[in-house]
């Protein structure tokens, strides 16, 4: 049996509230294999987005154990965590989170700029990605000049440009029309077929249908695990 790409053991998150603690996540045990396409579902406030943040190491204020690509995230110093994150994680956000004052091509280049790459290499990678997502004609536009679907496409391209092992997507179609949403989900499906591990958070049953497995969360607990 191959070792899981992601492995959580007894992960918990809470914050203090007058007269006790409010729990966001409780006793999460979860394994995700390389190449899986996993959907996190559950009502609002169930802890889906928090779990995704922990997986993406945006949130480091939790307890428990987290092994990513064989490395113990919970024992890492911030610098090493940053390094691991740069190498393995790509993030797609509901609000796209593109940088408004950078062009499409420059937005794609941002993650590369935080690695030791030669300018030529960076330009080649950006070019590839623009080709792959058919964004060549829009490479010099600013985000505000794009439709929501196109912005999210750029967001995905940016997440993929550093060739991450895992793509984390938080309601990637939440701000999109059904037609654009379908297109984005098909992009995810294609990426997954090509080997990228994907974990998405969604409310939509239709979106969940593109994945292999649905993990339900409610009030911070994994359901039926």
């Amino acid at each position: 049996m191959p070792s899981p790409l992601i492995s959580l053991r007894n992960v918990e998150k809470s914050y203090p509230l007058a007269g006790g603690r409010a729990w966001v996540l409780r006793r999460i045990d979860l394994d995700i294999q390389p190449g899986e396409f996993v959907t996190l579902m559950g009502p609002s406030g169930a802890g889906k987005s928090t779990l995704l943040s922990i997986l993406g190491m945006l949130d480091v204020d939790w307890t428990g154990e987290y092994l990513l690509d064989g490395q113990a995230v919970h024992a890492m110093k911030p610098k090493a965590r940053g390094e691991l994150s740069r190498r393995t994680i790509g993030f797609v956000f509901q609000q796209y989170h593109l940088l408004d004052n950078l062009t499409v091509a420059e937005n794609l280049e941002v993650p590369l700029s935080y690695r030791d790459l030669k300018r030529g290499e960076r330009e080649a990678l950006v070019g590839d990605m623009l080709d792959r997502f058919q964004l060549v004609g829009k490479k010099d536009l600013f985000p505000s000049q794009l439709s929501g679907g196109q912005q999210q496409l750029v967001g995905i391209a940016r997440a993929l440009i550093a060739n991450p092992k895992v793509l984390l997507a938080d309601e990637p179609t939440g701000n999109l029309h059904s037609q654009q949403a379908k297109q984005i989900m098909e992009v995810f499906q294609g990426l997954n077929r090509d080997g990228t591990t994907i974990i998405q958070v969604t409310h939509s049953e239709a979106n969940a249908a593109y994945g292999h497995r649905v993990i339900q969360l409610a009030d911070g607990w994994l359901q039926g695990a």
């Binding site: 940053g82 740069r86 935080y114 550093a162």
Partner: peptide, 16 residues
């Protein structure tokens, strides 16, 4: 602040 957050989320170290 948002730009800082996005850049950090995309892997910018504090030094950068």
């Amino acid at each position: 602040g948002r730009e800082v957050s996005i850049r950090a989320a995309l892997g910018a170290s504090r030094g950068r």
